[in-house]
Simulated scan of single mutants.
Amino acid sequence: MILRAVGACLLFVCVMAQDPGFNDTCVEGKYPPPAQRQVKEYVINLDLPPEQRWQKLASEKRHEIVALILEFKKFLMEWASGEIITIVDFLGENIDDTLPNPYRDEIKGMANATGIFVGELFVYNIFYELFTVCTSIVAQDPAGKMYHARNLDFGLFLGWDPKNRTWQLTDVLRPAIVNLDWQRGGKTVFKSVNYAGYVGVLTAIKQNKFTFSMDERFGIDGGYLGILEWIRDKKGSWMSFLSRETMEYAPDFAAARDKLANTQLIAPAYFILGGTKPGEGAVITRNREVNGTDVWMMTDKTAGGWYVLETNYDHWKKPLFLDDRRDPANKCMQKMSIKNTGFAGLFNVLSSKPVLNKLTTYSALMQVDSGTLETWLQYCPDPCEPW
């Protein structure tokens, strides 16, 4: 966290020196976006052997996956002096001893289908444990109908392009975004939003059961430290693998909440969960260890009452002054009001700066009763905050 804060301060000075500035406002009329920004859906057949499940998607999106891996490795060389690449390359040769199944065989199957080195695909699949910022909202309408919306912002510190005023990795990520329909026996088990070739789950919906999103929680007790500890003694669960298992097997909101709150992790996290009943919205603030877990319910008097909102800071603390998306988002939620809760209202909130910023890759909208998942590519025209 200290290194990130120092890096953020330095980058803030450089970037904001060229920023024309803007007044954050709550926008309206942004939904629906142009049709070409809607994300394509693919089927992941869970009845297939793990090594075959991703072959078609990985083959179609090979170019996008390679471009992403090149950006990741560029960052690691510049920021970690190649040490992490050395570790990951070593693990790639021994991936049978590194990841649990079915993830191990799925990644190996993708490597076989695309010709991409398995260690590089491993880098790709663990990177979310280390570096992202996000905004997640669970809200109910006046009838108690539940909605879940999120922005996924990715690419902080990963190559700021001062000429085009964009993050290089963020630009590379957008073409790789896909919706996935996870099926068994020809029927949908759950749906998710993924970067092509990423086998974990960051944003997902299980019809008539619950909705889910995950935001990174910054902290010293996690990230690289957790990965190194896991290499040593296999202690803890990868966040996105735990969330995928939760989506696949948890029968309801309560079971999902308990699993996410009580499983040891490799890195700290915020798990945002929505259910089917009024008041079933929660932010689960996690340490790596299960002790200290905080479950903040929508019905808590410190929450919105009819909604709960999380960015990347503990809800009982003030956000970092360089990165306050929470207060503008709450301002726009209050302006929207419960009577306007729905895809249009929530998309407007997610499209309001600085909730929408240069790091934003997509906005996802979910409604649990219908099982609807809409994902839209997002862009933030200038003037716009870098994060």
Rank of each mutant, 00 (worst) to 15 (best):
F127S: 08
F157Q: 09
V178W: 01
I137A: 00
L152F: 13
S136F: 03
M146T: 10
M146C: 02
N112A: 11
Y103S: 02
V123G: 12
P162D: 10
I116K: 05
I84P: 00
A139Y: 00
G186L: 12
F154Y: 04
E78L: 14
N94I: 10
I65T: 02
W167F: 12
L130V: 11
F72D: 04
V66C: 13
F131I: 11
I95H: 08
W182L: 15
A113C: 09
L152H: 13
M77L: 15
F72R: 04
L156D: 07
V138E: 00
P102Q: 03
E120W: 05
L76R: 04
T98H: 06
A149K: 12
W160P: 01
E93H: 15
G159C: 02
T166A: 14
Y103D: 02
R174Y: 08
L68N: 03
K145W: 08
A111L: 07
G186T: 04
F117H: 15
L152K: 14
Y128N: 13
V138Q: 02
S81D: 14
G109N: 01
V133I: 13
N125R: 00
C134W: 05
Y103I: 02
N151T: 08
A149E: 09
A149D: 07
L91T: 04
I84H: 10
A143K: 15
N151F: 01
E64A: 08
Q183P: 10
V133M: 10
L180M: 09
P175F: 05
T86R: 11
R174N: 07
V189A: 09
P102F: 04
K73W: 13
E93W: 09
G92Y: 08
G185Y: 14
F75C: 13
R174H: 07
Y103W: 02
K163W: 14
G155Y: 00
